[in-house]
């Protein structure tokens, strides 16, 4: 029954971008989506954690690893997750060389940031048949 829709698979790595209003906030969002598309992590809703939705909190507790991607040193994603009781692995795009107000949100920067976060596991050729993944 509905095997294909089963949500019982392992939670694995969950990724929470800050998705903020600035260029680096947008970059964090696109990097997370790219990593999710490439199977590096599952993107999750930071807003649901911030709103303390019990189902979202409990679902996040099932993760093996939680990654926060923040665009700047305010570290909103990391702080929201910590406030909810999680200890995320934190990445600040500023530390990865992306300056707020001076960053172009383009494929090159998305791939560069994603590679730095995933330890080089994002490759252009990954998951070709899913369409549009990893720079294809």
């Amino acid at each position: 029954m509905a095997e294909n829709n089963c949500m019982c698979q392992e939670a694995g790595v969950l990724i929470f971008p800050c998705s903020g209003g600035s260029d680096v906030g947008e970059l964090s969002d696109k990097v997370a989506r790219k990593m999710a598309k490439c199977g590096q992590a599952k993107m999750f809703c930071l807003a649901g954690i911030g709103a303390h939705i019990p189902g979202m909190i409990e679902s996040a507790k099932a993760a093996n690893k939680i990654i926060a991607i923040d665009g700047c040193q305010v570290l909103c994603s990391k702080k929201i997750l910590e406030h909810a009781g999680f200890s995320p692995i934190s990445f600040n795009l500023k530390d990865l060389g992306f300056e707020k107000g001076k960053t172009q949100v383009n494929e090159e920067n998305i791939e560069k940031a994603a590679n730095k976060i995933s330890g080089g596991k994002i490759e252009k050729t990954t998951i070709r048949d899913s369409g549009g993944c990893c720079g294809n």
């Binding site: 509905a2 829709n5 089963c6 949500m7 019982c8 939670a11 999750f44 649901g48 939705i53 019990p54 189902g55 979202m56 409990e58 679902s59 507790k61 099932a62």
Partner: peptide, 29 residues
């Protein structure tokens, strides 16, 4: 609750989940 839309309304992204009196107390295990 087997309907995915209803499960999602609870904010649950990982199943199986357990709710007590309408509040999710566990998910993904």
């Amino acid at each position: 609750v087997t309907d995915i839309d209803k499960i999602t309304e609870y904010g649950v992204m990982m199943t199986p989940a357990l709710a007590v009196d309408g509040t999710v107390v566990s998910a993904g295990k």
